[in-house]
Design a binder for these strands. Sequence first.
DNA 1: TACGGTTGTCTATATCAATAGACATTTGGA
DNA 2: TCCAAATGTCTATTGATATAGACAACCGTA
Lengths: 245, 245
Amino acid sequence: MAGLKQVQRQTGVALWRQIADRIREAIGNGAYDETGMVPAETVLALQFGVNRHTVRSALAALAQEGIVRAVQGRGTLIERKERFNFPITRRTRFTAGIGGQAREMRGLLLEEAKEEASAEIGRRLGLKPGAQVIRLETLREADKQPVSRATSWFPAERFAGIGEAYRKHESITKAFAELGLADYVRATTEITAAHAATADLADLELTPGAILLIAKAMNTDLDGVPVQYSISRFAADRVQFTIEN
Amino acid sequence: MAGLKQVQRQTGVALWRQIADRIREAIGNGAYDETGMVPAETVLALQFGVNRHTVRSALAALAQEGIVRAVQGRGTLIERKERFNFPITRRTRFTAGIGGQAREMRGLLLEEAKEEASAEIGRRLGLKPGAQVIRLETLREADKQPVSRATSWFPAERFAGIGEAYRKHESITKAFAELGLADYVRATTEITAAHAATADLADLELTPGAILLIAKAMNTDLDGVPVQYSISRFAADRVQFTIEN
DNA sequence: TACGGTTGTCTATATCAATAGACATTTGGA
DNA sequence: TCCAAATGTCTATTGATATAGACAACCGTA
Protein backbone atom coordinates (compact mmCIF):
# COMPACT_ATOMS: atom_id res chain seq x y z
CA MET A 1 0.00 0.00 0.00
CA ALA A 2 3.05 2.24 -0.28
CA GLY A 3 2.43 5.40 -2.29
CA LEU A 4 2.39 4.40 -5.93
CA LYS A 5 2.31 7.92 -7.24
CA GLN A 6 4.75 10.26 -5.61
CA VAL A 7 3.83 13.81 -4.87
CA GLN A 8 5.07 16.30 -7.42
CA ARG A 9 7.37 19.18 -6.78
CA GLN A 10 7.48 22.63 -8.34
CA THR A 11 4.03 22.47 -9.83
CA GLY A 12 2.79 25.48 -7.92
CA VAL A 13 0.90 23.21 -5.55
CA ALA A 14 2.56 22.89 -2.16
CA LEU A 15 3.58 19.41 -1.08
CA TRP A 16 1.63 19.69 2.17
CA ARG A 17 -1.47 20.49 0.15
CA GLN A 18 -1.05 17.46 -2.11
CA ILE A 19 -0.46 15.23 0.89
CA ALA A 20 -3.44 16.64 2.75
CA ASP A 21 -5.64 15.95 -0.27
CA ARG A 22 -4.43 12.38 -0.54
CA ILE A 23 -4.86 11.64 3.16
CA ARG A 24 -8.34 13.15 3.09
CA GLU A 25 -9.20 10.94 0.18
CA ALA A 26 -7.74 7.86 1.87
CA ILE A 27 -9.83 8.56 4.96
CA GLY A 28 -12.92 8.90 2.80
CA ASN A 29 -12.13 5.56 1.21
CA GLY A 30 -11.98 3.94 4.61
CA ALA A 31 -8.29 3.13 4.30
CA TYR A 32 -7.70 3.64 8.01
CA ASP A 33 -10.97 2.30 9.36
CA GLU A 34 -9.33 -0.58 11.23
CA THR A 35 -7.41 1.65 13.58
CA GLY A 36 -9.46 4.82 13.33
CA MET A 37 -6.17 6.61 13.15
CA VAL A 38 -3.85 8.02 10.52
CA PRO A 39 -0.41 6.36 10.34
CA ALA A 40 2.32 7.97 12.41
CA GLU A 41 3.88 11.13 11.04
CA THR A 42 7.22 9.43 10.52
CA VAL A 43 5.53 6.63 8.59
CA LEU A 44 3.64 9.05 6.36
CA ALA A 45 6.80 11.05 5.78
CA LEU A 46 8.50 7.89 4.59
CA GLN A 47 5.56 6.90 2.38
CA PHE A 48 5.38 10.26 0.63
CA GLY A 49 9.12 10.77 0.57
CA VAL A 50 9.04 14.09 2.39
CA ASN A 51 10.15 15.52 5.69
CA ARG A 52 8.10 14.88 8.79
CA HIS A 53 7.40 18.61 9.17
CA THR A 54 5.78 18.65 5.75
CA VAL A 55 3.46 15.86 6.84
CA ARG A 56 2.69 17.85 9.97
CA SER A 57 1.63 20.81 7.84
CA ALA A 58 -0.74 18.53 5.94
CA LEU A 59 -2.18 17.07 9.12
CA ALA A 60 -2.56 20.56 10.59
CA ALA A 61 -4.66 21.53 7.58
CA LEU A 62 -6.84 18.45 8.02
CA ALA A 63 -7.19 19.21 11.73
CA GLN A 64 -8.28 22.72 10.77
CA GLU A 65 -11.00 21.16 8.64
CA GLY A 66 -12.03 19.05 11.59
CA ILE A 67 -11.24 15.79 9.84
CA VAL A 68 -8.50 14.60 12.20
CA ARG A 69 -7.36 15.39 15.73
CA ALA A 70 -3.79 14.85 16.91
CA VAL A 71 -3.22 13.54 20.44
CA GLN A 72 0.25 13.71 21.82
CA GLY A 73 1.62 10.32 22.75
CA ARG A 74 -1.12 8.40 20.95
CA GLY A 75 -1.39 9.45 17.35
CA THR A 76 -3.67 11.31 14.97
CA LEU A 77 -7.29 10.26 15.34
CA ILE A 78 -9.85 10.43 12.59
CA GLU A 79 -12.67 12.70 13.74
CA ARG A 80 -15.03 12.24 10.84
CA LYS A 81 -15.06 10.80 7.38
CA GLU A 82 -14.93 13.10 4.42
CA ARG A 83 -18.68 13.17 4.15
CA PHE A 84 -20.91 14.96 6.58
CA ASN A 85 -23.65 12.69 7.74
CA PHE A 86 -27.02 14.35 7.53
CA PRO A 87 -29.64 12.38 9.42
CA ILE A 88 -33.17 12.79 8.14
CA THR A 89 -35.80 12.30 10.76
CA ARG A 90 -39.09 13.82 11.79
CA ARG A 91 -37.06 16.43 13.64
CA THR A 92 -34.47 17.16 11.00
CA ARG A 93 -32.68 20.48 11.41
CA PHE A 94 -29.76 21.37 9.27
CA THR A 95 -27.63 23.19 11.80
CA ALA A 96 -28.17 20.65 14.56
CA GLY A 97 -27.73 17.75 12.16
CA ILE A 98 -24.36 18.78 10.81
CA GLY A 99 -23.40 20.84 13.83
CA GLY A 100 -21.74 18.13 15.85
CA GLN A 101 -19.49 17.18 12.96
CA ALA A 102 -18.20 20.64 12.13
CA ARG A 103 -16.55 23.40 14.07
CA GLU A 104 -18.18 26.34 12.42
CA MET A 105 -21.60 26.48 10.81
CA ARG A 106 -22.79 29.32 8.66
CA GLY A 107 -25.96 30.06 6.78
CA LEU A 108 -25.78 32.85 4.22
CA LEU A 109 -28.81 34.56 2.75
CA LEU A 110 -28.05 35.13 -0.91
CA GLU A 111 -31.39 36.48 -2.05
CA GLU A 112 -34.87 37.23 -0.76
CA ALA A 113 -37.99 37.78 -2.81
CA LYS A 114 -41.73 38.03 -2.28
CA GLU A 115 -43.64 36.57 -5.18
CA GLU A 116 -46.74 34.75 -6.25
CA ALA A 117 -46.65 31.03 -5.56
CA SER A 118 -46.29 28.82 -8.59
CA ALA A 119 -48.82 26.04 -9.01
CA GLU A 120 -46.50 23.46 -7.55
CA ILE A 121 -45.26 25.55 -4.66
CA GLY A 122 -48.83 26.56 -3.81
CA ARG A 123 -49.89 22.95 -3.78
CA ARG A 124 -46.94 21.92 -1.63
CA LEU A 125 -47.65 24.65 0.89
CA GLY A 126 -51.41 24.15 0.76
CA LEU A 127 -52.08 27.72 -0.37
CA LYS A 128 -54.87 29.17 -2.45
CA PRO A 129 -54.10 30.05 -6.06
CA GLY A 130 -52.32 33.37 -6.35
CA ALA A 131 -51.18 33.45 -2.74
CA GLN A 132 -47.93 35.25 -1.96
CA VAL A 133 -44.82 33.40 -0.78
CA ILE A 134 -41.41 34.50 0.40
CA ARG A 135 -38.53 32.81 -1.36
CA LEU A 136 -35.11 32.59 0.25
CA GLU A 137 -31.93 31.55 -1.54
CA THR A 138 -29.46 30.31 1.02
CA LEU A 139 -25.98 28.82 1.12
CA ARG A 140 -24.93 26.67 4.04
CA GLU A 141 -21.30 26.16 4.97
CA ALA A 142 -19.63 23.81 7.43
CA ASP A 143 -16.09 24.74 8.42
CA LYS A 144 -16.05 27.31 5.63
CA GLN A 145 -16.76 24.63 3.06
CA PRO A 146 -20.00 25.11 1.14
CA VAL A 147 -22.28 22.15 1.77
CA SER A 148 -25.63 22.99 0.29
CA ARG A 149 -27.45 25.56 -1.74
CA ALA A 150 -31.15 25.78 -0.96
CA THR A 151 -34.26 27.49 -2.23
CA SER A 152 -37.03 27.79 0.37
CA TRP A 153 -40.58 29.04 0.15
CA PHE A 154 -42.68 30.28 3.08
CA PRO A 155 -46.29 31.52 3.26
CA ALA A 156 -45.80 35.27 2.99
CA GLU A 157 -48.41 36.58 5.41
CA ARG A 158 -47.50 34.22 8.22
CA PHE A 159 -43.70 34.63 7.98
CA ALA A 160 -43.17 38.21 6.93
CA GLY A 161 -39.64 39.24 7.83
CA ILE A 162 -38.18 35.74 7.81
CA GLY A 163 -35.43 36.85 5.47
CA GLU A 164 -34.18 39.39 7.97
CA ALA A 165 -34.50 36.91 10.81
CA TYR A 166 -32.51 34.33 8.86
CA ARG A 167 -29.80 36.81 8.05
CA LYS A 168 -29.50 37.57 11.76
CA HIS A 169 -29.56 34.03 13.16
CA GLU A 170 -28.24 32.11 10.14
CA SER A 171 -30.72 29.37 11.04
CA ILE A 172 -34.21 28.53 9.89
CA THR A 173 -35.09 27.10 13.27
CA LYS A 174 -34.14 30.31 15.08
CA ALA A 175 -35.78 32.47 12.44
CA PHE A 176 -39.01 30.55 12.93
CA ALA A 177 -38.69 30.98 16.69
CA GLU A 178 -38.32 34.74 16.34
CA LEU A 179 -41.50 34.83 14.29
CA GLY A 180 -43.41 32.89 16.92
CA LEU A 181 -43.10 29.35 15.60
CA ALA A 182 -41.45 27.49 18.45
CA ASP A 183 -41.43 24.06 16.90
CA TYR A 184 -41.93 22.31 13.58
CA VAL A 185 -41.47 18.87 12.08
CA ARG A 186 -40.25 17.38 8.84
CA ALA A 187 -43.30 16.00 7.05
CA THR A 188 -41.82 14.65 3.82
CA THR A 189 -38.43 14.43 2.17
CA GLU A 190 -37.76 13.45 -1.44
CA ILE A 191 -34.21 12.69 -2.44
CA THR A 192 -32.86 12.57 -5.98
CA ALA A 193 -29.51 13.09 -7.67
CA ALA A 194 -28.46 15.06 -10.71
CA HIS A 195 -25.55 16.79 -12.30
CA ALA A 196 -24.95 20.27 -10.99
CA ALA A 197 -26.38 23.13 -12.99
CA THR A 198 -23.89 25.83 -13.81
CA ALA A 199 -25.61 28.22 -11.44
CA ASP A 200 -24.82 25.98 -8.48
CA LEU A 201 -21.26 25.23 -9.52
CA ALA A 202 -19.87 28.55 -8.41
CA ASP A 203 -21.76 28.75 -5.11
CA LEU A 204 -20.79 25.25 -4.06
CA GLU A 205 -17.29 25.56 -5.47
CA LEU A 206 -17.71 22.46 -7.59
CA THR A 207 -16.13 21.37 -10.83
CA PRO A 208 -18.35 20.96 -13.88
CA GLY A 209 -20.03 17.59 -13.98
CA ALA A 210 -20.16 17.31 -10.21
CA ILE A 211 -23.08 15.46 -8.75
CA LEU A 212 -25.71 16.92 -6.47
CA LEU A 213 -27.94 15.25 -3.94
CA ILE A 214 -31.24 17.04 -4.09
CA ALA A 215 -33.60 17.00 -1.13
CA LYS A 216 -37.11 18.36 -1.53
CA ALA A 217 -38.49 18.85 1.93
CA MET A 218 -41.76 19.96 3.48
CA ASN A 219 -41.90 21.17 7.05
CA THR A 220 -45.12 21.69 8.98
CA ASP A 221 -46.03 23.09 12.34
CA LEU A 222 -47.29 20.79 15.07
CA ASP A 223 -50.82 21.05 13.68
CA GLY A 224 -49.69 19.74 10.31
CA VAL A 225 -49.94 23.10 8.55
CA PRO A 226 -47.11 23.54 5.99
CA VAL A 227 -44.65 26.24 7.00
CA GLN A 228 -41.80 25.67 4.57
CA TYR A 229 -41.08 23.93 1.32
CA SER A 230 -37.45 23.76 0.23
CA ILE A 231 -35.25 22.32 -2.48
CA SER A 232 -31.72 21.83 -1.20
CA ARG A 233 -28.81 20.91 -3.45
CA PHE A 234 -25.99 19.20 -1.59
CA ALA A 235 -22.51 18.59 -2.97
CA ALA A 236 -22.76 14.82 -3.25
CA ASP A 237 -19.15 14.22 -2.33
CA ARG A 238 -19.47 16.13 0.93
CA VAL A 239 -22.57 14.68 2.51
CA GLN A 240 -24.46 11.49 2.95
CA PHE A 241 -28.04 11.18 4.11
CA THR A 242 -29.10 8.79 6.79
CA ILE A 243 -32.75 7.90 6.98
CA GLU A 244 -33.84 7.00 10.47
CA ASN A 245 -37.28 6.06 11.66
CA MET B 1 -15.44 40.99 -17.44
CA ALA B 2 -13.30 41.88 -14.41
CA GLY B 3 -12.40 38.89 -12.26
CA LEU B 4 -15.43 38.03 -10.20
CA LYS B 5 -13.69 35.49 -8.06
CA GLN B 6 -10.38 36.63 -6.69
CA VAL B 7 -7.50 34.24 -6.46
CA GLN B 8 -6.99 32.81 -3.01
CA ARG B 9 -3.90 33.12 -0.89
CA GLN B 10 -2.35 30.69 1.53
CA THR B 11 -4.25 27.68 0.29
CA GLY B 12 -1.12 25.77 -0.64
CA VAL B 13 -1.73 26.57 -4.30
CA ALA B 14 0.59 29.24 -5.65
CA LEU B 15 -1.02 32.36 -7.07
CA TRP B 16 0.77 31.98 -10.39
CA ARG B 17 -0.68 28.50 -10.69
CA GLN B 18 -4.23 29.67 -10.03
CA ILE B 19 -3.82 32.50 -12.51
CA ALA B 20 -2.32 30.20 -15.15
CA ASP B 21 -5.28 27.85 -14.77
CA ARG B 22 -7.78 30.67 -15.17
CA ILE B 23 -6.06 32.15 -18.21
CA ARG B 24 -5.82 28.70 -19.80
CA GLU B 25 -9.51 28.22 -19.24
CA ALA B 26 -10.32 31.66 -20.62
CA ILE B 27 -8.34 30.88 -23.76
CA GLY B 28 -10.21 27.61 -24.13
CA ASN B 29 -13.50 29.49 -23.83
CA GLY B 30 -12.48 31.79 -26.64
CA ALA B 31 -12.38 34.85 -24.40
CA TYR B 32 -9.50 36.38 -26.35
CA ASP B 33 -10.41 35.22 -29.83
CA GLU B 34 -10.93 38.75 -31.15
CA THR B 35 -7.34 39.79 -30.70
CA GLY B 36 -5.67 36.39 -30.60
CA MET B 37 -3.69 37.73 -27.69
CA VAL B 38 -3.79 37.67 -23.93
CA PRO B 39 -4.30 41.06 -22.27
CA ALA B 40 -1.16 42.94 -21.32
CA GLU B 41 0.66 41.80 -18.19
CA THR B 42 -0.14 45.01 -16.37
CA VAL B 43 -3.83 44.62 -17.20
CA LEU B 44 -3.92 41.03 -15.98
CA ALA B 45 -2.08 42.01 -12.82
CA LEU B 46 -4.74 44.59 -12.13
CA GLN B 47 -7.59 42.16 -12.90
CA PHE B 48 -6.26 39.49 -10.57
CA GLY B 49 -5.06 41.91 -7.95
CA VAL B 50 -1.46 40.69 -7.97
CA ASN B 51 1.93 41.94 -8.95
CA ARG B 52 2.95 41.97 -12.57
CA HIS B 53 5.76 39.52 -11.84
CA THR B 54 3.25 37.01 -10.55
CA VAL B 55 1.34 37.26 -13.82
CA ARG B 56 4.60 36.76 -15.65
CA SER B 57 5.17 33.50 -13.76
CA ALA B 58 1.74 32.32 -14.84
CA LEU B 59 2.36 33.27 -18.48
CA ALA B 60 5.75 31.58 -18.37
CA ALA B 61 4.05 28.36 -17.30
CA LEU B 62 1.57 28.66 -20.16
CA ALA B 63 4.40 29.35 -22.58
CA GLN B 64 6.10 26.20 -21.29
CA GLU B 65 2.94 24.30 -22.16
CA GLY B 66 3.03 25.81 -25.62
CA ILE B 67 -0.28 27.59 -25.18
CA VAL B 68 1.02 31.16 -25.49
CA ARG B 69 4.11 32.86 -26.84
CA ALA B 70 5.32 36.23 -25.60
CA VAL B 71 6.73 38.70 -28.11
CA GLN B 72 8.58 41.68 -26.77
CA GLY B 73 7.02 44.94 -27.81
CA ARG B 74 3.83 43.36 -29.09
CA GLY B 75 2.22 41.23 -26.44
CA THR B 76 1.52 37.61 -25.57
CA LEU B 77 0.11 35.66 -28.49
CA ILE B 78 -2.13 32.65 -28.20
CA GLU B 79 -0.39 29.74 -29.90
CA ARG B 80 -3.14 27.17 -29.61
CA LYS B 81 -6.43 26.66 -27.86
CA GLU B 82 -6.67 24.37 -24.91
CA ARG B 83 -7.63 21.39 -27.00
CA PHE B 84 -5.18 19.47 -29.08
CA ASN B 85 -6.54 18.86 -32.52
CA PHE B 86 -6.23 15.24 -33.53
CA PRO B 87 -6.83 14.76 -37.23
CA ILE B 88 -8.14 11.36 -38.22
CA THR B 89 -7.21 10.32 -41.71
CA ARG B 90 -6.11 7.24 -43.54
CA ARG B 91 -2.59 8.05 -42.37
CA THR B 92 -3.37 8.90 -38.79
CA ARG B 93 -0.39 8.70 -36.44
CA PHE B 94 -0.64 9.89 -32.91
CA THR B 95 2.81 11.40 -32.49
CA ALA B 96 2.78 13.15 -35.84
CA GLY B 97 -0.81 14.30 -35.39
CA ILE B 98 -0.31 16.00 -32.07
CA GLY B 99 3.38 16.59 -32.54
CA GLY B 100 3.17 19.95 -34.24
CA GLN B 101 1.00 21.35 -31.45
CA ALA B 102 3.14 20.28 -28.52
CA ARG B 103 6.75 20.70 -27.59
CA GLU B 104 7.33 17.37 -26.01
CA MET B 105 5.64 14.10 -26.82
CA ARG B 106 5.92 11.00 -24.71
CA GLY B 107 4.50 7.52 -24.92
CA LEU B 108 4.75 5.42 -21.79
CA LEU B 109 4.34 1.68 -21.72
CA LEU B 110 2.39 0.85 -18.59
CA GLU B 111 1.88 -2.85 -19.10
CA GLU B 112 2.60 -5.61 -21.59
CA ALA B 113 0.97 -9.02 -21.76
CA LYS B 114 0.76 -11.94 -24.12
CA GLU B 115 -2.63 -13.59 -24.00
CA GLU B 116 -5.27 -15.41 -25.95
CA ALA B 117 -7.38 -13.16 -28.14
CA SER B 118 -10.94 -12.65 -27.00
CA ALA B 119 -13.71 -13.32 -29.50
CA GLU B 120 -14.03 -9.66 -30.38
CA ILE B 121 -10.33 -8.90 -30.58
CA GLY B 122 -9.77 -12.00 -32.68
CA ARG B 123 -12.49 -10.92 -35.06
CA ARG B 124 -11.15 -7.37 -35.29
CA LEU B 125 -7.66 -8.60 -36.06
CA GLY B 126 -8.87 -11.38 -38.38
CA LEU B 127 -7.25 -14.12 -36.30
CA LYS B 128 -8.20 -17.75 -35.84
CA PRO B 129 -9.92 -18.67 -32.57
CA GLY B 130 -7.43 -19.13 -29.76
CA ALA B 131 -4.66 -17.16 -31.46
CA GLN B 132 -2.22 -15.29 -29.25
CA VAL B 133 -2.10 -11.50 -29.12
CA ILE B 134 0.17 -9.01 -27.42
CA ARG B 135 -1.66 -6.38 -25.40
CA LEU B 136 -0.02 -3.04 -24.62
CA GLU B 137 -1.33 -0.54 -22.10
CA THR B 138 0.04 2.87 -22.97
CA LEU B 139 -0.23 6.44 -21.77
CA ARG B 140 0.46 9.30 -24.13
CA GLU B 141 1.50 12.72 -22.93
CA ALA B 142 1.86 16.01 -24.71
CA ASP B 143 3.91 18.63 -22.92
CA LYS B 144 3.83 16.46 -19.78
CA GLN B 145 0.04 16.53 -19.76
CA PRO B 146 -1.58 13.13 -20.14
CA VAL B 147 -3.71 13.09 -23.26
CA SER B 148 -4.82 9.55 -23.80
CA ARG B 149 -4.78 6.11 -22.28
CA ALA B 150 -4.84 3.30 -24.80
CA THR B 151 -5.13 -0.45 -24.92
CA SER B 152 -3.70 -2.01 -28.09
CA TRP B 153 -3.67 -5.56 -29.39
CA PHE B 154 -1.23 -6.97 -31.95
CA PRO B 155 -0.95 -10.42 -33.54
CA ALA B 156 1.60 -12.11 -31.30
CA GLU B 157 3.67 -14.09 -33.78
CA ARG B 158 4.10 -11.26 -36.24
CA PHE B 159 4.97 -8.56 -33.72
CA ALA B 160 6.87 -10.35 -31.01
CA GLY B 161 8.92 -7.81 -29.05
CA ILE B 162 6.73 -4.83 -29.89
CA GLY B 163 6.48 -3.96 -26.21
CA GLU B 164 10.22 -3.54 -25.93
CA ALA B 165 10.34 -1.62 -29.20
CA TYR B 166 7.60 0.74 -28.01
CA ARG B 167 9.35 1.32 -24.72
CA LYS B 168 12.46 2.30 -26.63
CA HIS B 169 10.92 4.54 -29.30
CA GLU B 170 7.80 5.68 -27.47
CA SER B 171 5.97 5.44 -30.79
CA ILE B 172 3.90 2.75 -32.44
CA THR B 173 5.03 3.85 -35.87
CA LYS B 174 8.70 3.47 -34.97
CA ALA B 175 8.09 0.22 -33.15
CA PHE B 176 6.42 -1.18 -36.26
CA ALA B 177 9.36 0.00 -38.35
CA GLU B 178 11.83 -1.78 -36.10
CA LEU B 179 9.85 -4.97 -36.53
CA GLY B 180 9.90 -4.70 -40.31
CA LEU B 181 6.59 -2.97 -40.95
CA ALA B 182 7.58 0.19 -42.77
CA ASP B 183 4.10 1.56 -43.37
CA TYR B 184 0.52 1.06 -42.30
CA VAL B 185 -2.85 2.78 -42.70
CA ARG B 186 -5.86 3.55 -40.53
CA ALA B 187 -8.66 1.31 -41.79
CA THR B 188 -11.52 2.20 -39.44
CA THR B 189 -12.11 4.51 -36.48
CA GLU B 190 -15.13 4.44 -34.19
CA ILE B 191 -15.65 7.34 -31.84
CA THR B 192 -17.86 7.39 -28.79
CA ALA B 193 -18.00 9.27 -25.49
CA ALA B 194 -18.49 8.11 -21.93
CA HIS B 195 -17.77 9.02 -18.37
CA ALA B 196 -14.31 8.06 -17.22
CA ALA B 197 -13.95 4.80 -15.36
CA THR B 198 -12.12 5.08 -12.09
CA ALA B 199 -9.17 3.18 -13.51
CA ASP B 200 -8.55 5.90 -16.09
CA LEU B 201 -9.06 8.81 -13.72
CA ALA B 202 -5.67 8.50 -12.07
CA ASP B 203 -3.68 7.90 -15.24
CA LEU B 204 -5.23 10.85 -17.05
CA GLU B 205 -5.25 13.03 -13.95
CA LEU B 206 -8.96 13.68 -14.27
CA THR B 207 -11.61 14.52 -11.74
CA PRO B 208 -14.45 12.04 -11.18
CA GLY B 209 -17.22 12.51 -13.70
CA ALA B 210 -14.88 13.68 -16.40
CA ILE B 211 -15.77 12.76 -19.94
CA LEU B 212 -13.72 10.62 -22.25
CA LEU B 213 -13.61 10.51 -26.01
CA ILE B 214 -13.13 6.89 -26.97
CA ALA B 215 -11.61 5.95 -30.29
CA LYS B 216 -11.63 2.34 -31.41
CA ALA B 217 -9.20 2.04 -34.27
CA MET B 218 -8.02 -0.66 -36.61
CA ASN B 219 -4.76 -0.33 -38.51
CA THR B 220 -3.73 -2.56 -41.38
CA ASP B 221 -0.61 -2.99 -43.47
CA LEU B 222 -0.62 -1.94 -47.09
CA ASP B 223 -2.08 -5.30 -48.08
CA GLY B 224 -5.07 -4.75 -45.84
CA VAL B 225 -3.99 -7.25 -43.19
CA PRO B 226 -4.87 -6.03 -39.68
CA VAL B 227 -1.78 -5.18 -37.62
CA GLN B 228 -3.28 -3.37 -34.65
CA TYR B 229 -6.57 -2.87 -32.91
CA SER B 230 -6.70 -0.25 -30.17
CA ILE B 231 -9.12 1.41 -27.81
CA SER B 232 -7.89 4.87 -26.85
CA ARG B 233 -9.49 6.96 -24.14
CA PHE B 234 -8.85 10.68 -24.57
CA ALA B 235 -9.50 13.32 -21.93
CA ALA B 236 -12.39 15.04 -23.70
CA ASP B 237 -11.44 18.51 -22.50
CA ARG B 238 -7.95 18.23 -23.93
CA VAL B 239 -8.52 17.03 -27.47
CA GLN B 240 -10.83 17.36 -30.38
CA PHE B 241 -10.98 15.06 -33.36
CA THR B 242 -11.03 16.29 -36.90
CA ILE B 243 -12.24 13.93 -39.58
CA GLU B 244 -10.71 14.60 -42.93
CA ASN B 245 -11.25 12.78 -46.16
C1' DT C 1 11.93 59.78 -36.29
C1' DA C 2 9.50 59.98 -32.12
C1' DC C 3 6.32 57.94 -29.08
C1' DG C 4 3.16 54.97 -26.50
C1' DG C 5 2.62 50.48 -25.24
C1' DT C 6 4.48 46.09 -24.46
C1' DT C 7 7.67 42.43 -22.84
C1' DG C 8 12.47 41.52 -20.76
C1' DT C 9 15.70 42.04 -17.05
C1' DC C 10 17.70 43.46 -12.85
C1' DT C 11 17.93 44.41 -7.71
C1' DA C 12 15.88 44.16 -3.26
C1' DT C 13 12.85 42.53 0.39
C1' DA C 14 9.51 39.70 2.89
C1' DT C 15 6.98 35.57 3.48
C1' DC C 16 5.90 30.77 2.58
C1' DA C 17 7.44 26.01 1.80
C1' DA C 18 10.53 22.32 2.78
C1' DT C 19 14.34 20.12 4.92
C1' DA C 20 17.25 18.94 8.92
C1' DG C 21 18.23 17.96 13.60
C1' DA C 22 17.49 18.04 18.48
C1' DC C 23 14.83 17.53 22.41
C1' DA C 24 10.48 17.85 25.29
C1' DT C 25 6.02 15.93 26.40
C1' DT C 26 2.51 12.58 26.58
C1' DT C 27 0.50 7.98 26.22
C1' DG C 28 0.06 3.10 26.75
C1' DG C 29 1.93 -1.07 27.77
C1' DA C 30 5.69 -4.29 29.37
C1' DT D 1 8.42 2.09 37.11
C1' DC D 2 10.51 2.16 32.90
C1' DC D 3 10.44 2.23 28.00
C1' DA D 4 9.01 2.58 23.25
C1' DA D 5 6.31 5.23 20.36
C1' DA D 6 3.97 9.06 19.20
C1' DT D 7 3.06 14.17 18.86
C1' DG D 8 4.78 19.02 20.21
C1' DT D 9 8.22 22.59 19.99
C1' DC D 10 12.35 24.95 18.90
C1' DT D 11 16.34 26.60 15.95
C1' DA D 12 18.51 26.91 11.53
C1' DT D 13 19.01 26.81 6.52
C1' DT D 14 17.63 26.71 1.71
C1' DG D 15 14.71 27.51 -2.11
C1' DA D 16 10.18 28.92 -3.98
C1' DT D 17 6.69 32.49 -3.93
C1' DA D 18 5.20 37.27 -4.13
C1' DT D 19 5.76 42.18 -4.02
C1' DA D 20 8.05 46.55 -5.39
C1' DG D 21 10.49 49.63 -8.31
C1' DA D 22 13.41 50.88 -12.06
C1' DC D 23 14.96 50.65 -16.55
C1' DA D 24 16.16 48.33 -21.04
C1' DA D 25 14.63 46.41 -25.41
C1' DC D 26 11.37 46.00 -28.85
C1' DC D 27 7.16 46.72 -31.88
C1' DG D 28 3.85 49.24 -34.51
C1' DT D 29 2.33 53.50 -35.83
C1' DA D 30 1.65 58.50 -36.21
